[in-house]
Each structure stands twice: as structure tokens, then as C-alpha cells.
Design a protein around this nucleic acid. Structure first.
Length: 866
RNA sequence: GGGCGCAUAGCUCAGCGGGAGAGCGCUCGCUUCACACGCGAGAGGUCCCUGGUUCGAUCCCAGGUGCGCCCACCA
């Protein structure tokens, strides 16, 4: 145990690892699965990627969840934070592929079986990192029941769900237009596609008419796809082309004859008003093609190269090579009428960053309407609430227009589809089919398919486990908005369908923390930081540098400071990362540490005395503490973490330290028993109040409080709340204002810091606090009625008259006083004008009018005093 | 093309019908026996613009400007 007396600074680096171990050894984070979910409290962590490392978004999100979990645990609820990791199909497979290539081989060379083994090894090597980082942050997860989405039991549950949805007819196989990601060599879902603005060349290409009478010109940004054109479309009402409908044109370079068709989809005002139709490589053309019964030739393969369906000279070229070749040939033949630059949105893969190649592919899909219906109702009815509430509408809009989900992925790392084929037969089941000659589908499921089951499969579903009984449904899902559709919506649907209840009653959508320059935090952009570098000290990336200073290093702020700072940053909006807030958190921990030293070293060893407030300031701090408890708790419960954090800070700095501890120092030196009781009580309650936000420093101080046993983290807050004490609050508010006025006057009048000034109190309402005013305002009060005051200081309820003293040089202050008088006159005039306004006096609420009158009186009194 | 949000002190942000606040930064003064990662006192703001509602607008309404995000298959 470090020596309280010698440590004038709180040292998180020494304290935090020690405290973390204490918590882990205590078993506190692993609740027994007892009782009912409605009485217990649980949160399922959004499972981080198994081989990932903690980034700022995690640290932020985990600070929020841990605050909630610790808060509810201290309310006496059995609280479980469900922990685990996600296999993260594409992300992990990509990592392993890279590692394998370093070793001089490739995924293909290794073959599926060996590669999967290598991936499991990779998980062994790198899978524990993020869990250890969570512990360092102080996250009170249930580490004893860590789950993984590829665990045997989890995998079985996934297959069971797949088979059940197949039985219901929701899951089916189809040849359909998909988003092909050439980067990962897999289809991906609509949600994994992002639109990016791109400047392309728009080519105007002449397609000669079969009739020989000229040509029809189409505009395209993808000339290479013309190799798969099957028609030309115009708008039925377009006068320019009406006579051509039904005629044919020759597809250049290929020679195929294309019918000219009419379709309302075509926009007459874009390009030439004639659109080439490529059903195999464009989602819109695909639909048009279906309407008109067109063939769907494919000239771009899944490898991103031109296929044999195109003329031989193009086969094997990459898409961009093919574009060059096609444009060259068209130019040669004089078929490119003109070109222009065209800015438009183009789909890219969020996974690989490569441009999506829309193509027709045989994939597994899932129809969503039936599952969506009750999930829509759950939000409409308020069974699931979003915070901020605006997200509910976005969710509903998306759910009401939900489309089929492409769930198969051409990867090796993941849940392999429980589907086998034999000739024309298809078998779907959690166990392999009996009999010979079956081949299993090579594809795996979209990672989000298994994530969608997270809140109940982690608790043992499909078995009816005590865990499920005790902790499902969970209470709140804490997430960023970028995965509301990908994950949250799907969890709600699957939870209702398979676990029979919504998976959580609240969804808290938190802000996204951006880099200080407003860009998103990203390792590749150099705009990210490792939270551990903030906690333990580490390099400060250039974008985090302040001013023109070189970036240097982060100090070791400690986990509490990082947690508090992140909470203080949170809001409904996206926020820029602010190191100042972390620093403010550090100040708070240090302040609390030192305030506790003052108290604990002051009260001595056997200090547990009953709370028996004897002085007005004791009543005041108890009342203020009660208020702070109410505010901080209320804000945590409303997911308003920044105000919870700032409210705590204000109480500790602005009330406990700045005023109460200063007020009671003389009594503390005298070890007045009544004070000791109150002080220790206030310390204990403050630690408990602060613990969910800054758990380490509070737990450490807790262990120094005499007579205390057990962990603060395990303490449950006594229900009985002390009443507020308005009288004491009002008395101290006056006292504080009076002290501040005196200090202000001193500074203003140039009184040296060490000088105590003789004065006379000519004000009512200070019977209990005159001594405080004298000490903190540094005046010596007397009732010397004879001396004429040399100055007066206005305070609530009267004035303090400053008496002559050779320590004072008031001539130096006269100019300043004149300025103050001017200001007072102006304010008086403003107030008088306002009160002369009949509209104001007649229509404003009486208390507002009265407040204005009081203010005028005060101003006048002060002016007269000067 | 739809939808949402934000513009307040040098910086990051609170506030949201009755003459605006915090942290950091800045200025001045303090070895006041818990803390100089501290204490005390200050300076600093046409609360984006234009109209409207109101006795009164930073706050409500309308329009505008600027910035950001989400959704959407227009070559």
C-alpha cells in the first residue's frame, strides 16, 4: 500500500493495474445466473473483431457501458456485461492472407483446410489482445464467460437458425444481380457498399442502324460493358426516337443486332436520351432486361476479367484494360462522337475499397419482410426505444423499405453454409446428409448473420439456460449509428423470431469521435490514436499536436482520466477528440486524491463517527451532495454522459473542494468529532457517486478509508436519501457571494495578498457565517462604530465597510472605482427603463418583474456605497 | 433526389423565451500547512445573416448562407 501522506500526486500507473487485479480476483464481474431478467441488468458488448486492437471508438463505447454496468451494480442489481469477440469474416481472413503471403505462400496454395487451421492459430496468437485492453480500461465485463462467434455451440446455433429460416422459405438461392467486390472476391450486401463521388469520362458512342440510315448515339461511362449489350432503350414519349422503336442497331465491335426498345426508366434529358442496356452488369439494366425479356450475357467474370463470352481479343483483359481496348477500337472506327467529363456517385466496397462490379451471380438470399414486421412494431410501440429518439425514424424508414439480404460470402473464414448438393438435390440441415455423393456448399455466411444472434446465443440459446432466464432480454444496446442497420435492426428481428422477445429495450446511439481536424479517426489516415497511449503514455500523432508545438508524447493520463474525458466529450452529435477533456479528467482524479488525503490524514485512524451535522456548512454540503447524486444518477439513466461527468466535476471542484473543505479546515485541525463524521460520510458518498465514471481512483481511495471493508465496486448504495436543506443552501449561497465580493474588491483595490484588512459587517443574515467571511475574505471584523469607512463592499443583505488602515492605498483604486460607477449607472438606467415599460410590468411573470426590481435595488445600493 | 443535424469567448463545447457559461489558452496576484496537474481575481462574445411572432429572441417560426452526416440503381 503506497503511503497516503507522501503521495501528493495521484499516480494511475501504479494504482490502476493493482486495482484491476483486485476486481478480477474478486469474481464480482461474474454474476450467478439467478433471478429474472426484468430485475437484473445486462448489456451485451458489441463484439470486437477477434484479432482487433482497441481503438478510440471502443474505449469510448466501453466507458459508457462500464459506467452503466457499474452504476446498476451499485444500485444492487445483479449485473452482467456479456463479453466476447466476433470472427469478423472478411477482416480476419484478409489479415491471415497477408500473414500467409509474408510466409511465402498463398491461401490458394494452402487449400481450405490448412488455411482454416492457420486462421485458428492466428486467432490464438492475436485473439487475447483486445480482452486485455478492456481489463486495462477497467471494463467490468464478465470475463469468465467469454464468447466467440465461431465457438462450437455458437456455430451450431447459427446453423440451426439458418435451417429454420430455410424451412420457413425465407432463405433461398437465386441468380441475381449482386454487389461483387473484386477486392475480396466475394459478393457483399448492400449495406457494405458505399457511394463515392468519381469523375469518369462519358463516352458518346454511335451504334449504326441496321436500316443503314445513320446511327443512334448512346452515352456511357462504362464502354467496356457494351460487349454485353442486349438492347437500346429510349423513352416512349421521346419524339426524337419514337420512329426508331422496334428498329435494330448494330452493336459495334461485336456485331450483334440490338433491338431499340421503349422504357419509362430512360431519362430523355440525360446524354442523348438513348440508353444502352447491359442486363448482366448494371442493376438498372438488369431490371429493364427482366421487363423486356432480354438475355443476360456476362462478359466480366468474378475474377474481374473479361470472359469468353466477349470477342476473343478481349478475353482475359482486366476491366480497365478492356475499357482502353474498346475505346481505342471505337475511335479507330470513328464511332466515338464525343466525350465529356462526368461526375457521379459510384459504388465501392467498404471492405476492400475497390469499385463494386455489379454482376449476376448464384447466391443465397434472405427475404426480410416477415421478420421486419414485428421488429417495426417493436419500435413503433416503444417496446424498443432509441436515444436520441430521432434514430427511430431512420430505423423505421429503412425497415419499411427493407430488401433481400445477400447472406453468402465467397470466403473460407466463417460459418460454412449447412447446405449440400447432389445433382439437382439440395439438402439443408445442421447435420450432414446421409448417403453418398453429397457436396457441401463452399460459401460461408455474412458475418452479420451470426452477429444478429449475439444477445441470446451468448447466453446459451437454443438451450433454455439459467443465463438466458436471468439476463435475456438485455437492457440496453450501446452502439454507433453506422451499424444500426447492419447489426441493431437484424438483432431485433432475430431476437423476436428466435428468442421470442426483443433483445433489449433501449438502444443508445452514441456520437462518433473524430480526429481534432474533423476527419474520421483511422489508422491508415494517421488520424487514429491507441487509447493505451493515452492511458499509459505514448507518441502523440501530428494531428493531435497543439498549436505549432511538435507533437511529443501523451502523458500517462490513466484510465480514469481517459474514461472521464471521453464521457465528457459525448453528445448527440459527432464530436472532435479533445485532449483537454482528458486532461480535465486527470485534474479531477488528482483533485479527488488530494481532497481525500486532506480528509483522511486529518481525521485520523478511528474516524467512523455518526453523521451529525453541527454547523451550517455541514448541512449545506450534505444537501449539495444529495443534489449532485440526484443529478448525476438522472443523467446516467438518461444516457446523458457528458452532463453526468461535468456535474460530478462541478460538485467535486466547485463545492466540495473550493468551499466546503476550505470552510472546515480550522475545525478539521481541531478534529471536531461532529465534523469528522460528516466529512467521512461525504467522502464515502462522493466516492460512490464517482465510481461508475472513474472507478480506479475511487476504489484506491476507498481502501484507505478507516473501517471500510470490501470493494467499492461491490458496494450498494443505501436507498434512504437525506432531505435537501434549502435554508442551509441559501445561507451558504450568500456567504459564497460575500466572500467573492470581498476578494474581488481586494484585487480591484490593489490590496496585497497577505494583508488582512479591518472591516465592519453591516449586513443581515450572517450570524452563522461571519467568521467564514472574515477568514476567506481576509478581513478582520470588528464593531468599531467610531471609525468612518474608507470604502464599502456590497454583499447580499448589506455591505462590508472597510475601515482605515495604513496597509491600504485607496488612491490607487480611485480611477477603477470611477469606471465601476459609470457601469453601475448604465445598468441602473437599463433596469429603470425596463421597469418603466408598461408591457413588461403588466405581462411578464410577477417573479421576473420582482427580480428586476431587486436587481435595481442592489445596483443602487452599490452605487451609493461608492 | 430524399432525410437529419450543426453554426455561441482564441480553441473544444454547454446553455435554449427575461442583458450568456465551462475546460483549455491569455492577463494579474499568491511557496494560504490536500493539491503549482494548485489557489484567488480578471480580460475576452453584432450568441452566422435577413425577416417574423412576442412586453421581451442567442433560444420559437420562415427564408438565406456555410459546414457535416445518413439514405437512394439514373447512363
Amino acid at each position: 500500500m503506497p503511503d497516503l501522506e507522501s503521495k501528493t500526486r495521484y499516480d494511475p500507473a501504479e494504482v490502476e493495474p493493482r486495482i484491476a487485479k483486485k476486481w478480477l480476483d474478486s469474481g464480482l464481474f461474474h454474476p450467478q445466473p439467478e433471478g429474472e431478467a426484468k430485475d437484473n441488468y445486462s448489456i451485451a458488448i458489441p463484439p470486437p473483431n477477434v484479432t482487433g486492437v482497441l481503438h478510440m471508438g471502443h474505449a469510448f463505447q466501453d466507458s459508457i457501458m462500464d459506467t452503466l454496468i457499474r452504476y446498476h451494480r451499485m444500485l444492487g442489481q445483479r449485473s452482467k456485461w456479456i463479453l466476447g469477440t466476433d470472427h469478423a469474416g472478411i477482416a480476419t481472413q484478409t489479415q491471415v492472407e497477408r500473414a500467409v503471403e509474408q510466409e511465402g505462400t498463398t491461401r490458394e496454395e494452402m487449400g481450405r483446410e490448412r488455411f482454416e487451421l492457420r486462421a485458428w492459430e492466428w486467432r490464438q496468437e492475436h485473439g487475447g489482445t483486445i480482452i486485455e485492453q478492456l481489463k486495462r480500461l477497467g471494463a467490468s465485463c464478465d470475463y469468465a464467460e467469454e464468447r466467440f462467434t465461431l465457438d462450437e455451440a455458437y456455430a451450431q446455433a447459427v446453423l440451426k437458425v439458418f435451417a429454420a429460416l430455410y424451412e420457413k422459405g425465407y432463405i433461398y438461392r437465386d441468380r441475381y444481380m449482386v454487389n461483387w467486390d473484386p477486392g475480396t472476391g466475394s459478393a457483399i450486401s448492400d449495406l457494405e457498399v458505399e457511394q463515392r463521388e468519381v469523375t469518369d469520362t462519358l463516352y458518346y458512342v454511335d451504334y449504326p442502324l441496321v436500316s443503314g440510315s445513320g446511327a443512334i448515339t448512346v452515352a456511357t461511362v462504362r464502354p467496356e460493358t457494351m460487349l454485353a449489350d442486349t438492347a437500346i432503350a429510349v423513352h416512349p414519349d421521346d419524339e426524337r426516337y419514337r420512329r426508331l422503336i422496334g428498329e435494330k442497331a448494330v452493336l459495334p465491335l461485336v456485331g450483334r443486332k440490338l433491338r431499340i426498345i421503349a422504357d419509362e426508366y430512360v431519362r430523355p434529358d440525360f446524354g442523348t436520351g438513348a440508353l444502352k442496356i447491359t442486363p448482366g452488369h448494371d442493376p438498372n439494366d438488369f431490371e429493364i432486361g427482366r421487363r423486356h425479356g432480354l438475355a443476360q450475357p456476362t462478359v466480366i467474370g468474378e475474377d474481374g476479367r473479361i470472359t469468353g463470352e466477349a470477342p476473343e481479343r478481349f478475353a482475359g483483359l482486366t476491366v480497365s484494360e478492356a475499357q482502353q481496348a474498346v475505346v481505342a477500337e471505337l475511335s479507330e472506327q470513328g464511332l466515338i462522337a464525343r466525350t465529356e467529363a462526368h461526375v457521379h456517385d459510384v459504388p465501392f466496397s467498404q471492405r476492400s475499397g475497390e469499385r463494386i462490379e455489379p454482376l449476376i451471380s448464384l447466391q443465397w438470399f434472405m427475404r426480410m419482410e416477415e421478420l421486419a414486421a414485428p421488429a417495426i412494431e417493436a419500435v413503433r410501440s416503444g417496446q424498443v426505444r432509441f436515444t436520441p429518439a430521432s434514430h427511430a425514424r431512420v430505423y423505421l424508414d429503412w425497415m419499411e423499405n427493407i430488401r433481400p439480404w445477400c447472406i453468402s460470402r465467397q470466403l473460407w473464414w466463417g460459418h460454412r453454409l449447412p447446405v449440400w448438393y447432389r445433382g439437382a438435390e439440395t439438402y439443408v440441415g445442421t447435420q450432414p446428409p446421409r448417403g453418398e455423393g453429397w457436396t457441401r456448399d463452399p460459401d460461408v455466411l455474412d458475418t452479420w448473420f451470426s452477429s444478429a444472434l449475439w444477445p441470446f446465443v451468448t447466453l446459451g440459446w437454443p438451450d433454455r439456460t439459467p443465463q438466458l432466464q436471468a439476463f435475456y432480454p438485455t437492457d440496453v444496446l450501446v452502439t454507433a449509428r453506422d451499424i444500426v442497420f447492419l447489426w441493431v435492426a437484424r438483432m431485433i428481428m432475430m431476437g423476436i423470431e428466435f428468442a421470442g422477445q426483443v433483445p433489449f429495450s433501449d438502444v443508445y446511439v452514441h456520437s462518433i469521435i473524430q480526429a481534432p481536424d474533423g476527419r474520421r479517426m483511422s489508422k491508415s489516415l494517421g488520424t487514429g490514436i491507441d487509447p493505451l497511449d493515452l492511458i499509459e503514455g505514448g507518441p502523440r500523432p501530428p494531428v493531435f499536436a497543439t498549436g505549432s508545438e511538435p507533437p511529443g508524447e501523451f502523458p500517462a493520463y490513466g484510465a480514469d482520466a481517459v474514461r472521464w474525458g471521453l464521457l465528457a466529450m459525448s453528445s448527440g452529435q459527432d464530436v472532435k477528440f479533445s485532449e483537454e477533456k482528458i486532461a480535465q479528467g486527470q485534474q479531477l482524479t488528482n483533485k479527488l486524491w488530494n481532497a481525500s488525503r486532506l480528509i483522511l490524514l486529518g481525521v485520523g485512524e478511528d474516524a467512523r463517527v455518526a453523521v451529525n451535522p453541527s454547523a451550517i456548512e455541514d448541512r449545506w454540503i450534505l444537501s449539495r451532495l444529495e443534489r449532485a447524486k440526484g443529478e448525476v444518477s438522472g443523467r446516467i439513466e438518461r444516457y446523458d454522459f457528458s452532463h453526468a461527468a461535468l456535474g460530478l466535476y462541478d460538485f467535486i471542484f466547485g463545492e466540495l473542494c473550493d468551499w466546503y473543505l476550505e470552510l472546515v479546515k480550522p475545525r478539521l485541525r481541531a478534529k471536531e468529532p461532529a465534523l469528522v463524521g460528516t466529512l467521512v460520510h461525504v467522502l464515502i458518498e462522493t466516492l460512490a457517486l464517482a465510481h461508475p465514471l472513474i472507478p480506479f481512483v475511487t476504489e484506491e481511495i476507498w481502501s484507505h478509508v478507516p473501517g471500510i471493508e470490501g470493494l467499492l465496486a461491490a458496494r450498494t448504495t443505501p436507498a434512504a436519501a437525506d432531505a435537501l436543506d434549502p435554508e442551509a443552501e441559501a445561507a451558504l449561497a450568500r456567504t459564497i457571494e460575500a466572500v467573492q465580493s470581498l476578494r474581488g474588491w481586494r484585487d480591484f483595490a490593489g490590496v496585497r495578498a497577505g494583508v488582512t484588512v479591518p472591516a465592519r459587517l453591516a449586513a443581515s443574515g450572517y450570524a452563522a457565517t461571519a467568521e467564514h467571511i472574515a477568514r476567506l475574505g481576509r478581513v478582520e471584523l470588528s464593531d468599531n462604530g467610531a471609525a468612518a469607512p474608507v470604502a464599502t463592499v456590497a454583499i447580499p443583505g448589506g455591505v462590508v465597510e472597510i475601515l482605515p488602515s495604513d496597509q491600504l492605498d485607496l488612491g490607487a483604486a480611485e480611477r477603477k472605482l470611477a469606471a465601476r460607477r459609470e457601469q453601475l449607472r448604465a445598468e441602473i438606467e437599463r433596469a429603470e427603463r425596463k421597469l418603466a415599460n408598461q408591457g413588461f410590468v403588466a405581462q411578464a411573470p410577477p417573479e421576473v418583474v420582482q427580480a428586476e426590481r431587486d436587481k435595481l435595488e442592489r445596483l443602487k445600493a452599490e452605487l451609493e456605497g461608492k
